[in-house]
Computed example of a mutant assay.
Amino acid sequence: MTIAEAVLIAVAGFLAGGVNAVAGGGSLISFPALVAAGLPTLDANVTNTTAVWPGYLGSAAAYRSELRTQGARLRGLAVTSVLGAGAGSAILLVAPDAVFDAVVPFLVLAGSVLLALQPRIAKAVLARTEAGGQGQTAQLHVAIFLAAVYGAYFGGGLGVILLAVLGIFVADHLQRLNGLKAAVSLLVNTVALVAFALFGPVDWGAVAIVAPASLLGGYVGGRLARRLSPDVLRTTIVVFGVVVAIWLALR
């Protein structure tokens, strides 16, 4: 890796950590930067998943007060999340690289669309939870399993998917659902991290650059969150994501 490529992924990691703290969608920055630095798309995906893990840990820790009284609920979803993440990781590692190369532009585009819809999803979740709506437990576990499969396979927009699922099937306050989303996201990412560290083509040199840069970006982003416009930032990332999806499709 050249110095220029190292600087590129360091800056991308910093920006990804910052936008995750403000609006979410940081992987739409760090993943294509790793590809631009010369990593194959599958290698970039597993490397990105490994590098952003500390951010999931920090997010779950930030919601520990909201999680303290949801132990039984979280334990009920933990097994489903771990099984789904295991399946998603296995699919990614076992399937031919060409399969991921073919679907990744659509995954990036899907992540961009989910990020664009994030405010509406959050508003719908809030309205539903205030109304006391709640679905069936079996349906909740099926939806969480599928979300975990997606999260381990690619992960862009996982938080938005989980918030929507929890909002549909669990009647509770939005901040408590956000805490549950953070914990489930951490579980999914941890399973993927272990699987990729043991069996995946992780570029540990890139991880050593992106991970601390992302942590620093998350800290700075958290400090600046109240001064920045999440809507403007979200729109910028969505446009960037669409451009990246087109670029990946044409490579």
Rank of each mutant, 00 (worst) to 15 (best):
F145N: 10
S89E: 04
L83G: 14
F145Y: 11
L83W: 06
G18F: 06
L146M: 15
T137G: 08
R75V: 05
V242L: 10
G55K: 03
G132C: 09
T236G: 15
V202T: 01
A143D: 07
L107K: 03
F31G: 02
Y150I: 15
L180Q: 14
V104I: 15
I161F: 13
A12D: 02
A249E: 02
S30A: 11
A98D: 12
V103K: 05
V52P: 00
K181V: 09
P212S: 02
G84F: 09
T236E: 09
S59T: 15
L180Y: 06
V160C: 09
G155L: 00
I29F: 03
L28H: 01
L193Y: 07
F145S: 11
S229Q: 03
F240R: 08
D172Y: 03
V52K: 04
A197Q: 05
G155N: 01
G88E: 01
L74D: 02
F196R: 11
D203Q: 05
L158M: 13
V113L: 14
A122H: 10
L67A: 07
L163P: 08
V170M: 03
G218E: 00
A78E: 06
A110D: 12
D97T: 09
A213R: 02
Q175H: 15
P32I: 05
A131S: 12
Q134T: 12
L115Y: 12
A143G: 08
Y56S: 13
F106P: 02
L166F: 10
L216S: 03
A21P: 00
G132E: 07
A143W: 07
Y150W: 12
A110I: 13
A102R: 13
R128H: 13
G200V: 03
Y153E: 07
P96K: 09
L146Q: 10
G24W: 01
A102S: 15
P201R: 14
P212N: 02
V125H: 12
A51P: 02
P212I: 00
A195F: 14
R223M: 09
T129Q: 13
L140V: 03
T137Q: 13
A72P: 01
V113K: 03
L162N: 04
I144L: 09
A127F: 14
P119A: 08
L216D: 00
T80E: 04
G38C: 08
Q175G: 01
T49A: 14
T41E: 11
R128W: 06
N189Y: 01
L57C: 10
I3H: 11
V202A: 03
L107D: 07
A90E: 05
I91Q: 11
A138G: 09
T235A: 15
Y63K: 11
Q134D: 05
A21Y: 01
S89Y: 02
D97V: 03
S30T: 04
F145V: 10
V202W: 00
Q134R: 14
T137D: 10
